[in-house]
Amino acid sequence: MTWPLIDLRTTPHGGRSLFAFQPIAQGTKIFACEVPFAHVIYKDYRREVCAQCFAYAASTSRSIGDSRTWSIRSCRATAETVWFCTDECKVTWESGAIGPLIADVNALLGKAKIATRRNSARDGYDPILPNGPTAQITQDYIDKAWTDVEDLASSRTRLSAYCLTMNLEDMELEISRSVASAIVQRYVFDHRLASPVVSSIISALDPWTEALDLQSSELSNVSVRPYILAAHLRVYAFLCHSLPKHLRLYVPTARHILARDTGNAFGIWDGDSRDEMLGWGLWAGASYFNHSCCPNVKKTRVGRAMHFTTSRSVEIDEELCISYIDTDQTITQRRRDLEDSWFFKCRCQRCQSEELGEASPH
């Protein structure tokens, strides 16, 4: 597949990646992902972040003197209250199918979380955890754990009994909200409740297929963070129990979303300063970009969209890369951050040069 400026190719080092199909000048917008496939704004920021464009009230107040909280809001009886920076954003949000449905779902999940907190077990025992030793994480071990929770969820009686004693943590609720937003997106797409929004300028795939095309990090993620498996299993059970029937049909896809979220999601930050992370989102098409510690592409969030612009001139057939981390750090810290969060050891041109320099005598 080719496009006017960029080409999607399979690489020996990083799966699929984007390359320059022809020379590209500095400052050229080469790529855009218009909407996140899944996203969540952290609870502590929801009154301060516009539900439509993700504008942050605290950042805006520095220049125009507004309060830290938006005053425009939508308060439908069945939905969670959401806030907006302008009436225009509110009208845009309310006229769509996805935003109001997500607000309805978030209200249900919030009430269900309160119920689990009220009835949670006191001894810390959680029967959803896999049995047996966890010293060696394998794909078979993970598959068995998912088979067990799927078996639990197949019985509404057992599932209800478990969820009424579940101690769902706050971050697990945020993960549940993110997964639920993807489920709503798929439901809306399948039932043609809204015109599909192409998530990127290079993909003709529907949003769900595009998300599934992303690389799974399930085994790597659980190997580095064994605790995340139990959290994902609880999220799955919680969604099976809490979502309305027409959306529960899609919960079996939750595992696929969770397996691709880590390593593919982007933080939703308060602006160029990146002082505060307001939540996170999965812009599927944006994950075509590999990492480099000397990137030639800059990523910028414009409202809900992710825009990608060349930060220097690029030659034909040159790989187009962004930076996943703070590149002002030492090679040791950069590689540690990348291995911890993205599960690979960086061997970009800069890292290889610095590695040789560190290894050679001065």
Rank of each mutant, 00 (worst) to 15 (best):
V314W: 02
S323H: 03
A145F: 03
D66S: 15
N131G: 09
F308I: 09
V302K: 10
P100Q: 10
R177K: 15
E210T: 02
A180E: 05
E174L: 04
R234F: 01
G99D: 09
Q215H: 14
A359L: 13
H256L: 12
S311M: 06
K345C: 11
L18Y: 09
R122E: 12
A103H: 05
H13Y: 05
P127G: 06
V198Q: 13
S176E: 03
S176I: 03
L193K: 14
Q185W: 06
R334L: 05
G15V: 11
R118Y: 13
K144I: 10
A254L: 03
A55T: 04
I128M: 09
E210K: 07
T86D: 07
A211W: 00
T28W: 06
T253G: 00
R225E: 11
N119Y: 12
H241Y: 13
A112P: 01
W146I: 12
L239G: 08
R47K: 15
T310F: 08
S95C: 12
D340S: 12
I64Q: 11
D340G: 02
A182W: 02
Q139K: 08
D317G: 00
W146K: 10
K90T: 04
R334K: 09
V105D: 00
T300R: 10
V35H: 03
I257G: 04
E355C: 12
I201C: 13
W280K: 13
C53A: 06
L18W: 10
C346N: 10
Y125V: 14
G303L: 08
G357A: 14
D213C: 11
D272Q: 12
A145D: 03
D66L: 13
L219G: 01
C85D: 14
R255D: 01
I201W: 01
N290W: 01
C163Y: 08
G271M: 07
F84D: 02
Y250K: 01
K43H: 14
Y187F: 14
L205P: 00
L243D: 10
C163K: 08
I6W: 06
E34F: 10
T157A: 10
G96A: 04
A359S: 14
S242C: 09
A20W: 07
D170H: 11
P196L: 07
V302A: 08
R158P: 00
D44I: 03
I137Y: 05
A284V: 06
Y250R: 03
L108Y: 02
Q329W: 03
I41P: 07
I128S: 11
A115L: 11
N290D: 01
V105T: 03
A115M: 07
R347V: 11
N106L: 04
